[in-house]
């Protein structure tokens, strides 16, 4: 093959390689969610109440401890599981008893869930119990939310802030 043709062939190769790289680097566009949908994330990291309340140690118990470890109170490490329910427009989408983290079950219970909903007005209900009770809830939130298309709303939980919070 004549040199000129070879060089032309090489140029064609470089152009094709660059074009392919450039195209695949951005296209085709990927649509993560339908444009008419919104997203609600339910996520929290919350340590439930302890299985046993803290109590004062007796004088005898304090005396039995090594001097460097003597303290007035003792608390059990284990926590209750956190039970959570999450509903949108009356439909229960998520309910789970979340075990506390850690070998001694003394860590927080955690969850991270995503729900896609049509944009518009929705009644969102989130309930949570962390006291080990069999029925009822310790925290509850019911709210009418107006979600715009493409909006991402987070439902978090912080007991010190009074319960569920919207972000």
């Amino acid at each position: 093959m004549a040199d000129i043709m070879r060089y032309a062939g090489q140029a064609v190769f470089y152009v094709c390689a660059a074009a392919l790289t450039g195209y695949l680097s951005f296209r085709p566009l990927y649509q993560q969610t339908h444009p008419g949908l919104a997203q609600i994330k339910l996520s929290f990291s919350h340590g439930a109440q302890r299985v046993e309340d803290c109590r004062r140690l007796t004088t005898k118990e304090i005396a039995a401890l090594p001097p460097s470890e003597r303290r007035p109170n003792t608390c059990s490490r284990e926590r209750h599981p956190v039970y959570v329910e999450f509903s949108i427009d009356g439909e229960l989408l998520y309910s789970k008893s979340l075990e506390p983290a850690g070998l001694s079950k003394d860590g927080p219970s955690r969850t991270y869930q995503k729900f896609l909903v049509e944009a518009g007005v929705h009644a969102v209900t989130a309930r949570l119990r962390d006291s080990g009770r069999e029925a009822g809830f310790d925290y509850e939130m019911e709210q009418q939310l107006t979600l715009a298309p493409g909006q991402s709303l987070a439902v978090d939980f912080r007991s010190e802030a009074g319960g569920f919070i919207l972000k």
Binding site: L24, S25, F26, L29, Y30, T33, Q39, Q151, S152
Partner: peptide, 14 residues
């Protein structure tokens, strides 16, 4: 914008 779903993204398919 974490208040929005990314939606359409120009993914690097490589």
């Amino acid at each position: 914008d974490l208040a929005r779903v990314p939606g359409n993204v120009g993914l690097d398919w490589i």
